[in-house]
């Protein structure tokens, strides 16, 4: 994983899906970065309703739907889950 958002790793965005979001979508998707602007665009492509998302990480950092998505970013999307 690349922690540095400025250095592009390619023109793809890696989206990792977890828990119930894997159902029907698989564990990981690669999307064309050129077609995406904001974090919320990714959810639209994957048909995940925003209100179902509890944790949205871009390169390991908690992010909002408005955050920019750049080439080479790794996204991780979780529904409400937790433990201890």
């Amino acid at each position: 994983m690349n922690g540095n958002r400025e250095k592009g790793m390619g023109d793809m965005v890696e989206v990792r899906l977890f828990a119930t979001f894997r159902e029907g979508r698989g564990k990981v998707c690669y999307l064309d970065a050129a077609k995406l602007v904001k974090a919320s665009d990714v959810l639209e492509v994957l048909r995940i309703p925003q209100e179902e998302v509890a944790i949205y990480l871009i390169n390991g950092r908690h992010s909002s739907m408005e955050d920019r998505v750049l080439d080479g970013d790794v996204l991780a999307v979780f529904p409400p889950v937790g433990g201890g």
Binding site: M1, G3, F18, T20, F78, P79, P80, G82, G83, G84
Partner: peptide
Amino acid sequence: ENGVTGGGLRTYGTAVLVNIINNTG
């Protein structure tokens, strides 16, 4: 009503944290 206590913990157990914590490095 809470997503964690109402569904997440029952379905996946506390083990669901493996991927979350790992993805935060």
